[in-house]
């Protein structure tokens, strides 16, 4: 049956005709954490934005469809699509500073969404937000709610955003490298919080990262992305036990054992890249034929 998120053959192009997403297929089941890994520029954020309906205006979807809990997003009228996405999804962003409005108090930003989008009363929204702040272990909600974003630490801000993301009980959360901008010491706590809330609320997460160590820890499924193309998709355990694609193997070889939280990707082997390049070229060729 239909999953939480179903992306099929999604292709998106830049104005110059270059494809940034190359027939991406991806499925996230309800309550599941699906990791999306790949190097910088692979198109991970692009996929997240496509799902959430906030692609840059220069990027155009030319093919494929996305279903959110069975609803075909491409077939819905814009207004209904916005409402559906607003009610069923949320984003945990990479940079918790710019994701909060600098000139508005944290509290009003958090409750606003519940009040204006879900039509809750202010009181109910406030109770709900406080409950979530407690879940993300913020012990002084009064101060936090009254603060402006710049008055909070990076870790605090990300907790606030996590609380805000879960507050409306979305079915799917896109987490785009939610710990990259944070202090090493805070990264683990934040990650643990996300997983904890995800389990308790049964929310599906599309977790974007370039850190295989994180993938191993939190996800049930992985899609490996290279140049906007999914080169391998597997259960996490299976992927780590027996990576099929040479690029996945190269990524794993290039990642220092999962002890270093900064585990960044070292350069991937030349031969593998050459193989990938021809694979991509072949895929583009095959794609171009029916599309002129």
């Amino acid at each position: 049956m239909s999953g939480c998120l179903d992306i099929r053959d999604l292709s998106a192009v830049l104005p110059n005709g270059q494809r940034v997403l190359r027939s991406v297929s991806l499925a996230v089941q309800p309550g599941e954490v699906c990791a999306l890994v790949g190097e910088s520029g692979a198109g991970k954020t692009m996929i997240g934005k496509a799902v959430l309906g906030v692609l840059p205006s220069s990027v155009r979807i030319v093919e494929g469809d996305m279903r959110l809990e069975g609803e075909d997003l491409g077939k819905l009228p814009p207004k209904a699509r916005r409402t559906l996405i607003g009610a069923r999804t949320a984003l945990i962003p990479q940079d918790p500073l710019t994701a909060l409005n600098p000139s508005r108090r944290v509290g009003s930003q958090m409750t606003d969404r519940l009040v204006r989008i879900l039509g809750w009363s202010g009181e109910r929204a406030d109770t709900r937000i406080r409950q979530l702040l407690d879940e993300v272990q913020i012990r002084d909600p009064d101060r936090v709610l009254k603060s402006y974003p710049h008055e909070l630490s990076g870790g605090m801000r990300q907790r606030v955003l996590i609380a805000a993301a879960f507050a409306a009980e979305p079915r799917l959360i896109v987490a785009d490298e939610p710990t990259t901008a944070l202090d090493v010491t805070v990264q683990k706590q934040i990650l643990r919080l996300i997983v904890q809330l995800q389990r308790e609320h049964g929310t599906a997460i599309l977790f974007v990262t370039h850190d295989l160590g994180v993938v191993a820890k939190i996800s049930q499924k992985v899609s490996v992305l290279y140049a906007g193309k999914v080169v391998e998709e597997a259960e996490t355990a299976a992927l780590f036990a027996a990576p099929q694609h040479p690029y996945t193997r190269a990524l794993m070889a290039a990642t220092p054992r999962y002890t270093d939280p900064f585990a960044s990707l070292k350069p991937v082997d030349e031969a593998v890249l050459a193989g990938l390049a021809s694979e991509i070229a072949a895929a583009d060729q095959a794609w171009r034929r029916p599309h002129g």
């Binding site: 309906g53 906030v54 409402t83 949320a90 710019t98 994701a99 909060l100 409005n101 204006r116 989008i117």
Partner: peptide, 13 residues
Amino acid sequence: HMDYVENARIAGY
């Protein structure tokens, strides 16, 4: 171009 505007769009404002 700030993320908070994008966030508001996702929320459906």
